[in-house]
Design a protein around this nucleic acid. Structure first.
Lengths: 225, 225
DNA sequence: ACAAAAGTGTTGAGAGTACACCCATGC
DNA sequence: GCATGGGTGTACTCTCAACACTTTTGT
């Protein structure tokens, strides 16, 4: 039996693009130009091209919507409930990306009437099952933040410890203790001082950078030995 | 632009089915009857049907290959490298399932010349990119084992602590300390005594069962607070 | 001098790890 | 009575969480 004897779905990639902006966790959404859900907000995405891998397709979408090339990108989950797209049988491979805010200026692609950042904590109504996808992406981001060093992907190259802590707080949605935070992050040896300082309203703050040679993952606590 | 204007891939599900047998971690493979890779071993799978979700397709495959219905099933990853299937453009959504050995008798489905368990530590050459998929599934299984209670999905309803420890050892590929193992698992309060004993060659062993109300997940140690 | 943000240590509790011997049964 | 696997406790180290004051700068 040949491939053509089986019905084939359309397959898209959707890319949840996170950033930090104004002490808020934001996600890039596009306003749909065409039906279905014309005028509604949606996660940017598009059809996979033959001859490209799903990851390449996700990188292409990311480039089209943000212009950025070299960012953290990870496959999230594949959604394929029948009926999730009123046009027909459409399966989507969802990705999530982390971009530092200052590197990006959202651009509306061909199919979008607009593109802008939305706070993850104040989202508009969303097309398709995109609210589910975002909820899952947030859960996964929080989870990864706890046991890997992905947080740095959202920050500029240099940052202060207070800025880093604020980033963690806004993503996790909880306050953290300053002394414990500093002790733990410094003992993890994933950042180093740059020797520079950031001048501000109070005492100048040491600037740090991520150590690219750092081990990004810590062993999880085992439920069983 | 309509859905039909875009090229569509074939989409399959592949289900990595793990079990424990003879103190070994095993995976169910089928021997392919048809080209490509006729006569080679492969992960069981098949095309998704229109009107079913990927998860339903995975459950259907699982039923066809093993007859079991009610088992642990989790989406693993979606593989879509161009060229991974010589017949053309085929994307596969990989799942992994955990089944207790005694509940299953492998059956060769229509497209298979044979089906049998293989040790994860002594695999035959595999069709397509299935070696990659298995390697990733093993990594994920080990990872989940460390911070959730999925291990019980591989054991019969009642078991001794020694059997449980042996299961963990064969999956993780390392020896564990008996006293620490027992202390930790009992303090996690995920199992309870049945009151029965298993008679064997030495002192009879207490039988335990999994507590279905138990919390299956433990907080991971945070890299950062 | 005062406002604003940066920076800094200690203590008590719980978890992880390493380690060796006695117990209950079948033969 | 002995072989076989089941079952048990302690001491040390490390990590976690809670908690408040001093330092450095700009105005």
């Amino acid at each position: 039996m040949a491939l053509e004897d089986y019905p084939r779905p359309s397959v898209t990639v959707d890319v949840v693009i996170f950033t930090l902006q104004d002490d808020d966790l934001r996600v890039l959404l596009i306003k749909r130009k065409h039906p279905p859900f014309a005028g509604m907000w949606a996660i940017p995405g598009g059809f996979i091209d033959m001859h490209e891998s799903p990851e390449e397709a996700a990188l292409r979408e990311l480039r089209e919507e943000t212009g950025v090339e070299d960012v953290y990108l990870e496959q999230l989950y594949t959604f394929g409930e029948p009926g999730r797209d009123p046009r027909g049988w459409v399966i989507t491979i969802a990705y999530f990306a982390l971009v530092p805010a200052h590197t990006v200026r959202p651009r509306a692609g061909d199919d979008a009437a607009a593109a802008r950042w939305w706070s993850m904590y104040a989202l508009p109504p969303l097309a398709f099952d995109h609210a589910d996808i975002l909820a899952y992406a947030l859960q996964r981001l929080r989870y990864k933040l706890e046991y890997t060093a992905v947080g740095f992907e959202l920050l500029p190259e240099v940052f202060t410890l207070s800025e880093l802590q604020a980033a963690y707080e806004v993503i996790l949605g909880e306050k953290l203790d300053k002394r414990n935070f500093r002790r733990k992050i410094l003992s993890a040896e994933v950042i180093e001082e740059t020797g520079q300082y950031r001048m501000g309203e109070g005492r100048p703050a040491k600037l740090y950078r991520f150590r690219p040679d750092a081990v990004a993952e810590v062993k999880a606590r085992r439920l069983f030995p």
